[in-house]
Simulated assay, not measured.
Amino acid sequence: MRFSWHVTGAFVIGGAVSLALAALLGPGVWGAGAAPAASNPVIAQTPWGPLTESDRDFVVKVRAAGLWEYPVGQLGLQKGTSKAVVTASRHLVDGHSALDVTCRKIAPMLNITLPNKASPQQQGFVFTLTADNGEQFDTDFANILRMTHGSIFNTVAKIRSTTKNTLVRALADQANDTVLDHITVMERTGLVDFEQTLAKQTAAPTLPSSDLTPPPPPFGEPVIVLTPPPDATSTPVDVDGIGAPAGGAVPGTGR
């Protein structure tokens, strides 16, 4: 099944309209592509190295990705009609629960506030898939998830290659492995329309930043936990084993 795009950027799958896929975690959000150093200022000096705006945004966006892909994985376990889609769904739940553990560990260390809700656009993806059933669900599931993971893959690599913060670097390592795994399992469903997916995943964002940004949690709201499955295989980052970069020291460790 093929999908089409309106000139407004709306995404049409089987007659259901969701928000524009191309904008999700695109260049305007994730900082993909070359940018002058002045556009990515250091916002804090930490024991694990300087923290930039892009570093902080990366941690927030990894958390936000889990807030919609984890429940979509749960949907796939219930609604998927093929073995490949069910397998991909297990990978979503497993991978994002492990990433979430890492995000929740390093965020307070870096004084980063994590969201408890995905962005409006990401919530739109969940709405679309919640409304789907049967083969339509399988097709939409594979194409939406292949699009979104393909869009962020290069950005993860950029953060990994440029950050000076050892905690953010470790999260990027984990995210790189997870995103590549999720791209692979989506492709193995045999349902991905590569022609349109690859053309759109690098398209410039068409939605306002407010639709692409997860809202901050209300003051005092407990942090939502994405519970790992009983048979989890993905491993969170061993934060306790991460030391400071050369010249730094982790408080209370003597390193």
Score class of each variant (00 low, 15 high):
M1R: 14
H6S: 12
G15L: 14
G15R: 01
A20N: 11
A20C: 09
L21V: 03
A23N: 07
A23K: 11
G26T: 06
A32S: 15
A34Y: 09
A35M: 14
P36W: 15
A37M: 12
A38C: 04
S39T: 14
S39A: 13
P41W: 05
A44F: 02
Q45I: 10
P47Q: 05
L51H: 00
D57E: 09
D57R: 10
V60M: 11
R63T: 00
E69N: 07
Q78M: 12
K79C: 01
A88W: 10
R90L: 13
H91R: 11
V93Y: 02
H96T: 14
H96Q: 04
C103M: 03
R104M: 04
K105Q: 05
A107H: 02
P108F: 03
P108V: 03
N111F: 05
N111W: 10
P115L: 06
P115S: 04
A118S: 13
P120W: 07
Q121S: 15
Q122I: 13
Q122N: 11
Q123I: 09
V126R: 11
T128I: 06
A131W: 14
D132H: 08
N133K: 12
Q136D: 15
F137A: 00
D140C: 15
L145H: 15
M147A: 09
I152N: 10
N154F: 12
A157I: 04
I159Y: 01
S161I: 06
K164A: 13
L167G: 08
V168E: 00
R169P: 13
D173R: 09
A175Y: 09
N176H: 14
V179S: 05
H182M: 15
T184E: 14
T184H: 08
T184R: 10
T189K: 09
E195S: 06
Q196A: 07
Q196T: 13
T197Q: 10
L207N: 07
S210V: 12
L212C: 01
L212E: 05
T213D: 02
P215R: 02
P216S: 02
P216F: 03
F219T: 15
G220Q: 04
E221Y: 11
V225N: 00
P228C: 07
P229W: 04
D231R: 02
D231S: 09
A232L: 07
G241E: 05
A244I: 00
G247W: 01
G247E: 05
V250N: 08
G254Y: 00
R255G: 11
